[in-house]
Design a protein around this nucleic acid. Sequence first.
DNA 1: AGTTGGACCTGACTGC
DNA 2: TGCAGTCAGGTCCAAC
Length: 278
Amino acid sequence: MPELPEAETIRRQLEHEIIGRRIVSVRVLRASLVRRQAPEELMRTVIGRSIERIGRRGKAVVVTLDAKSGATLVFHLGMTGQILVAPREAEPDRHTRVVFALDDGRQVFFQDQRTFGDVAAYPETDWRKIPDLAAYGPEPLKPAFNVRYLRQTLPRRSAKIQAVLMDQHFVAGIGKIYADEITYAARIHPERAANSLSEQEMRRLVRATKRILRLAIGHGGTSAADEKYVDAYGNYGGFQFLLNTYQRTGEPCRRCGRPIQHLPLQGRRAHFCPRCQR
DNA sequence: AGTTGGACCTGACTGC
DNA sequence: TGCAGTCAGGTCCAAC
């Protein structure tokens, strides 16, 4: 559930808290969260290095260590991943998977109940050379995600628009919650073939994407009913109060009053208003 | 190359 | 009360 707005909220908080700190030790409590390399390799790559920059690519939180001849730490939060800044005396709990100790005594806990997340270290500070990040589609909040891009890519996509929106290779950072909210805001039915969108619908989709994501960032992300997301301080977001369709099956559409429905899509549920979305 | 569906994982919840 | 079954979903992989 952490998607772009949640990752961005955490990024901003980490930027405020841990820039300039040095990583003095790493404890891997659950090796399956370090699945792209041996835990020892991750430790060797990051220990002793200073945190110089906190970035984000799609849903991934990207930590640059020693920008010159340094390294990069990439966190994928999966469904239930959390990055918590913890005081010196804090103890890991049963969901703490990796602990980074900082030179000021504080700790960064990588928590993950369902263990779909992962963290990896690369001896490289150029994101373009980090394979999974390089393969992502454009950042939705950057100018490169625009109507021209949709015009160029969507004609080749026969899949449902909701599925294409969640495809990280098409655009980075959108998952279930925001795919639901974006198609609603754009008034496009989630099952529409991506290659059937009109010019006007593409414009609505681009604008809705940027508007919803910015709004959600402004509210600190979404902490939905189950698997509640928390930020780097352990606090909930506030966007769940502004959701129009996600997990609102049976509740009235805020625009027309019709009950929100859901249908199976990509092995998940897509929520939508049968009247407002065509 | 694009699309689809299953697997992974854990905890909460449902129903018998 | 107990326990099996179901659900949630980001990402990867295989198969078409």
